[in-house]
């Protein structure tokens, strides 16, 4: 299993004595084998999360702490990014629309692309960077400094305390972050629209909400639930299964960011296809 210390230490020893042993004994597993092993372990990890998250006792205190960490603490960064995205997308879209003489469609077009795609994905990437690496590094260092072991021997289920709270917090907070980021980005777009043109606030709001449909907003929020889950899951997985001491902590944080960013895009692709399949566009 994945928290099998046997396997990890085995790996550790093998790495340590690699140079002394014959080549065949130290051969690293092939990339495919590694990939499948990693995917299997990740799935088992997710399964354990689902099981443990439903079973009492629930640790609300830690959940709130993590929610604060993931949600509130990311707000500033996410808001700045969203504002800039709103502004930039508007400025960049204007020339094309002007060419078609459809400048008045700017708020409508920009709001749809922001709400449906840009803000959720950019927010998720920011969170993958901030939250994913944070979780990966924190759990990784707890792992290598035996803090997770210490929790285990003190009779607390560290998986529940550390992993369940973090994944749940990320899953719940990301959609809220995205809603706020949507609002901020639309505000940025309003300023963008008014840099070269003049659109009153009332007209802008009217055009934006005239264009937006439930089928724009709701799927994008649902998508974010999965983004949050993926970011929390991968950050925790990479951190919780860290080996090789302090070097491993850096690798865990790095892998958490890289993998969760990639997974965000994969989920986005799937979400686009599913909404398309369900005719929600």
């Amino acid at each position: 299993m994945l928290i099998n210390k046997t396997g990890e230490i085995n790996h550790m020893y093998r790495e340590r004595y690699r140079l002394l042993l014959p080549n065949t004994m130290t051969k690293r597993p092939s990339i495919f084998k590694q990939w499948f092993e990693e995917t299997g372990n990740l799935s088992a990890f997710a399964g354990r999360y689902l099981r443990d998250s439903l079973r009492p006792p629930y640790d609300f205190g830690e959940l709130l702490r993590q929610a604060f960490e993931v949600g509130y603490r990311s707000l500033g960064l996410v808001a700045i990014t969203a504002f800039i995205m709103g502004l930039v997308i508007t400025i960049q879209s204007r020339p094309t629309l002007v060419e078609f003489g459809a400048e008045s469609w700017l708020p409508a077009m920009v709001s749809v692309s922001l709400v449906r795609e840009i803000v959720p994905v950019v927010t998720a990437l920011i969170c993958a960077g901030r939250v994913g690496s944070g979780i990966g590094a924190e759990l990784g260092s707890m792992k290598v400094t035996e803090q997770i072991d210490a929790m285990e021997v003190s009779g607390t289920n560290p998986f529940k305390y550390l992993v369940v709270s973090r994944i749940t917090a990320a899953t719940l907070m990301l959609p809220i972050l995205v809603v706020i980021a949507d609002a901020v980005s639309l505000w940025g777009a309003y300023i963008g629209v008014n840099i070269k043109g003049v659109v009153s606030y009332d007209l802008y709001v009217r055009q934006v909400f005239d264009t937006l449909e439930y089928s724009d907003v709701v799927p994008s929020i649902i998508k974010c639930v999965f983004f949050g889950f993926a970011i929390g899951l991968i950050g925790c997985f990479k951190g919780y299964t860290t080996t090789k001491g302090t070097e491993g902590v850096g690798m865990a944080a790095n892998a958490a960011v890289v993998v969760s960013s990639l997974v965000v895009f994969i989920i986005d692709l799937l979400a686009a296809q599913i909404t398309d399949l369900l005719n929600l566009n």
Partner: peptide, 8 residues
């Protein structure tokens, strides 16, 4: 634990 393993 060797490293004391205090929760940081």
């Amino acid at each position: 634990f060797q490293s004391s393993a205090l929760y940081d």
